[in-house]
Write a protein that binds this DNA or RNA. Structure first.
Lengths: 205, 205
DNA sequence: CATTTGTTGACTGACGGTCGGTCAACAAAT
DNA sequence: ATTTGTTGACCGACCGTCAGTCAACAAATG
């Protein structure tokens, strides 16, 4: 009945990984199914055994990128001690310009470009999940600040705004050259912290 | 010497207007040059007399939308008296769900999706201009608040953050369903105002 | 060997963009 | 007033590209 059972989900990931660099090299606009097939070492028709369409491929790749990024985040965040450092690392995605992070950032940009014309249910769900993840992370950081008596309890009201501000920075970076996102971020966080820190907290610069 | 001189810039606008509804109806993904030509009542080849490529058409349409929106904004903003009302109207673009504003918003979404894969110099410049416009507007509102002694002078430090927050809301609305952008906006503005208002200002709720 | 499952690349249709040619409008010459 | 010349707006047949399909083949199984 079933000769050679294939784990489609695994093969999906393998194939996406195989052309994860491809998308980075040529960009979505120039990514063709043929290139994907060649890159994965299979026939063009086979691609459609695992992916519904081109957008679906991009989606899988972005999934992997985001997953990697989140894992890295969870690892790295523990290495920072001060609340402010942690907050700034929260903005790492948009502030850091090293090759690895840029890869994630650009991948996300291409992903957004698809959503904006072709969003499907799976994508909305995925976005929702990502959002829950970052809200949890930020919530933890802020809560820690409050517990340590460095931040005023009112700070909790600014969790969502900080998240939204981060998204705003993403949009700024994606739409405007010569905008110093780092400066704007520092400005906002510093000014905000001046308002929501306890007297305790202000001492520990 | 000169047979039938045509104002290309005007025709560009006319044509863009002619298919402005088209793009709204079918979306960028399904917008074909042929449809544009049909909609404008001209031949396919002629389209390229006025536009470099498909992206260029979208760009012109968005230009018109944004221009209209900005003019409307300048008219409407004068009708609000309180600073907070003005600030909320500043967020009108992302908060208002009426047909007209949604049209602008969706147009902008499609525009972003192009920039994200195919940005050119003209588009970056345009974004820059838009940004300058909204910064001027917000600056005026905040300055008025300070002059009226309703807002603390520190408020000026929050002009850029508020702008960036607005962009963040845009991204939220474009990527997540079931997110109450209105609530998030009110939350942020109210909490922030509680921190940056003068005692004078707090009285005037 | 028969059957089922996986794989393939030739094929199709759609679309963006090009290009040689047409013709209305106007100017200059007669 | 009429003819002739020039220009450039306009057109749509055509081309290359590419996403997606499918009939045929290969491999595995019992």
């Amino acid at each position: 009945m079933a000769p050679k059972v294939i784990d489609k989900a695994k093969k999906r990931k393998d194939m996406a990984l195989a052309c994860s660099n491809l998308i980075h090299d040529v960009g979505i606009k120039n990514l063709t199914i043929q290139k994907v097939a060649d890159s994965a070492g299979i026939g063009k028709g086979t691609v459609y055994e695992y992916f519904e369409n081109k957008e679906d491929i991009i989606f899988e790749i972005i999934n992997i990128h985001i997953e990697n990024y989140q894992n890295q985040f969870l690892k790295d965040i523990t290495t920072f001690s001060s609340i402010k450092e942690k907050i700034f690392y929260f903005f790492n995605f948009v502030l850091n310009d090293d090759e690895e992070t840029s890869k994630h950032f650009n991948g996300y940009r291409e992903y957004l470009s698809i959503i904006f014309t072709d969003g499907n249910e799976g994508m909305w769900d995925f976005n929702e999940e990502c959002n829950i993840f970052i809200e949890e992370q930020l919530n933890q950081i802020i809560q820690e600040g409050i517990d340590k008596n460095e931040l005023n309890p009112i700070s909790k009201k600014f969790i969502k705004p900080i998240m939204i501000f981060e998204k705003g920075l993403v949009l700024v970076k994606m739409t405007q050259k010569n905008q110093n996102v780092k400066k704007e971020c520092e400005n906002f966080i510093n000014e905000l912290f001046a308002l929501i820190s306890t007297k305790e907290g202000i001492k520990n610069v």
